[in-house]
Design a binder for these strands. Structure first.
Length: 641
RNA sequence: GCCGACGUAGCUCAGUGGUAGAGCAACUGAUUCGUAAUCAGUAGGUCGCCGGUUCAACCCCGGCCGUCGGCUCCA
């Protein structure tokens, strides 16, 4: 048979030659390192006997696809160790994930952290034994009989559902698992790994099903890469907004008041207001009109909008004088009422209503998370009511706005998703096919016109319309949910939102719902982590601290503060009787961008010694020079340090 | 909501049934000092809350609240 080698040459091998032998023939050094192969692009185990020839490539520990194989094999190692130590345990599934791997187990007693240590030790022992890992293809019935004999009901369920007439399993020593592979050729080839945590997880991801115990871990080909990953986890921990936020006195969550409710402290409120000012400025400039709508409304409104039907579980309701009321979970019905408060002509469109609207939603206690997932939050919401002809320009306008914001906040990397409906199930969606097509075309055209590449996500649209979602990546490469643009075919229909067309007819509007920050809480939480608490000058709660060195220069320092404050800068004065080193240390810990040191020399020369939080001592600068520089950074919303 | 872990001073953490501790922060005083911690003193706790066991509970048991890691669901 003929084999196309990795270098492109074609060579002949006898049928049944193992891929490892082909690697050997290609390059003995490669053969030693190859952990698996690609046959015409399909992953195969390295010992797999090749029957029909084809194009061969080899996967080495450095290959991007290698990681998944290492992790998947390590998850089997985990299950193997658990079975050894706890024979009564039933095994579920154990895939590789973005960050590592997990395996789900059914066991009456909970695993303890001590169990985890024992399991990890056993895993290492099995790795040491260097057991061969072999793929076994057998009739489905045989595999079923095997798992039945072990009482592994979950596996029996999986094999019955997923397996064809012949199913593949992987065996290492006494342990065998139902799996498509590929895997490392032996347990000794497994790299560095670590078990990380314990969690509950529903069988097949459904709340209806029993809950299993999930053990999480991570694995890498080398210890260096594992250590690097663990270091990154530490780094993420240091940036955690739930830690930094209270430490920098930005916000707190108060048990007395209840979970999921954010108290914005003065420092946090500065960040928030600066963001709000920027937002209002940009929106007014682009023809948005600010509106304000009430926090509560009769349930009548929410019945009309459909929320009472579809969103009730998330709404807080109460009664006043025997009428039912709802605390608003969304702003759109309110905006639509303003639109409907009188007849609208096509001449008025597009109408763009914007509101920093605070909404409250009931979220199950287990999902709450710092500022990221809360029960009360402020959306930077806007609704665009326009004609079909105006759609494209409107979407383009929104995308321009989105890009402006991403840049300003230093999110240089982002990805765009376009979520469209599952066209095979039109009954699940509001609006007609024509509307969906038109909306989708407009979204695609707008994205193209702005040179934005995107991933199309079939069936990911909400029931009321297609949407664009932006995912932004922070300074250490983690994704955050960003701006979103959504069409809404439901509300205009339900609320009868129309305009008078040139021919005098009543025509339904097209409604677009969009948010840039999403929620101020979530966005600020993300920013804290993105900047690790070191906000750029324009956002920093305190932009500079003036530090007199001795009491002799106290009055001068006060003057410096006054000058900066008069220029609109947020400037503190540290006149404690501490040494300069201590003042610097404290300002540094508060992540203040500039420290302005005022000693005798500076007072004499009408300068300050400038110290940057990031670059350290920058030497003396004239008062007006530092003032103007900071004013420029502030007004220019310079995203950097 | 579910599974598991955790909850001691503002923060970080000691404290295995017998009178609650340290460092930092805070406050007071001294010190007037040149780029990440000056020194001394003082104060600060219903050990998350409620109940139970016990002569005695921060410690053991139960319930609740909250936080964290996940699952499930979302800005």
């Amino acid at each position: 048979m003929e084999v196309v080698m990795p270098d492109g040459s074609v060579r002949a091998f006898p049928r049944g030659t193992p891929l490892s032998a082909i690697a050997e023939a290609a390059d003995p050094a490669l053969a030693r390192r190859a952990i698996a192969a690609l046959l015409d692009g399909v992953e195969k185990d390295i010992y797999w006997p090749l029957e029909g020839g084809g194009r061969i490539e080899f996967i080495t520990p450095e290959s991007p696809r290698a990681l998944e194989i290492y992790r998947h094999t390590t998850s089997h190692l985990l299950a193997n160790a658990v079975k050894d130590l706890f024979p009564e345990v039933k095994i579920g599934i154990g895939p590789a994930t973005e960050e590592g791997f997990f395996y789900d187990f059914e066991r009456r007693e909970p695993f303890t952290p001590e169990d985890l240590e024992r399991i990890e030790a056993r895993m290492r022992a099995i790795k040491e034994r260097d057991l061969p890992i072999r793929r076994i293809e057998q009739p489905k019935e045989e595999a079923l009989a095997y798992f039945r004999r072990l009482g592994d009901n979950l596996k029996v369920e999986l094999v019955s559902e997923k397996g064809g007439p012949v199913v593949s399993c992987y065996r290492q020593g006494e342990f065998m698992d139902f799996c498509t592979g590929p895997h490392l050729p032996s347990t000794g080839r497994i790299g560095a790994f670590k078990l990380l945590s314990l969690a509950g997880a529903y069988w097949k991801g459904s709340e209806e099903n029993q809950q299993l115990q999930r053990i999480y871990g991570t694995a890498f080909p080398t210890d260096a890469r594992l250590q690097e990953h663990l270091r990154l986890l530490e780094e993420a921990k240091k940036r955690d907004h739930r830690k930094l936020g209270p430490a920098l006195d930005l916000f707190s969550v108060e048990e007395t008041a209840g979970p999921g409710l954010i108290f914005w402290h003065p420092n946090g409120t500065i960040v928030r207001q600066v963001m709000e000012d920027f937002w209002k400025e940009e929106h007014r400039r682009r023809g948005y009109q600010m509106v304000t709508t009430p926090h509560i409304a009769r349930d009548e409104l929410w019945r009309m909008s459909g929320h009472f039907e579809y969103y009730r579980e998330n709404m807080y309701t109460f009664e006043i004088e025997e009428s039912g009321y709802v605390i608003k979970p969304m702003n759109c019905p309110g905006h639509s009422l303003i639109y409907k408060s009188r007849l609208r002509s096509y001449r008025e469109l597009p109408i763009r209503y914007a509101e920093l609207g605070t909404v409250y939603r009931y979220e199950r206690s287990g999902v709450l998370h710092g500022m990221m997932r809360v029960r009360g939050f402020t959306q930077d919401d806007a609704h665009i009511y326009c004609t079909r002809e105006q759609i494209l320009d409107e979407i383009k306008g929104v995308l321009d706005l989105v890009i402006t914001f991403l840049k300003t906040f230093g999110y240089d990397r982002y990805e765009v998703d376009l979520s469209v409906r599952d066209a095979t199930h039109p009954e699940r969606y509001a609006g007609n096919a024509d509307g969906w097509k038109m909306a989708e075309d407009a979204l695609v055209q707008a994205l193209q016109s702005r040179g934005l590449s995107y991933t199309r996500r079939e069936g990911e649209a909400v029931f009321y319309g297609p949407k664009i979602d932006v995912r932004m990546f922070d300074a250490i490469g983690r994704p955050w949910q960003g701006p979103t643009v959504q069409f809404d075919f439901n509300l205009p229909q339900r609320l009868g939102i129309q305009y008078i067309a040139p021919d005098g007819s009543q025509t339904p509007v097209v409604m677009v719902h969009r948010a840039i920050y999403g929620s101020l809480e979530r966005f600020v939480g993300g920013l804290v982590e993105h900047y690790a608490g070191s906000f750029p000058v324009w956002l920093a709660p305190v932009q500079a601290v003036v530090m007199p060195i001795t009491d002799r220069t106290r009055d001068y320092a006060r003057e410096v503060q006054r000058i900066l404050r008069q220029a609109g800068l947020r400037c503190d004065l540290d006149e404690r009787s501490e040494k300069i080193g201590a003042k610097i240390r404290d300002a540094q810990l508060k992540k203040v961008p500039f420290m302005l040191i005022a000693g005798d020399r500076e007072a004499q020369a009408r300068t300050v010694s400038v110290r940057s939080r990031r670059e350290g001592d920058l030497g003396p600068m004239g008062l007006l020079a530092i003032r103007d520089r900071m004013v420029q950074m502030n007004a220019g919303r310079v995203p950097g340090p």
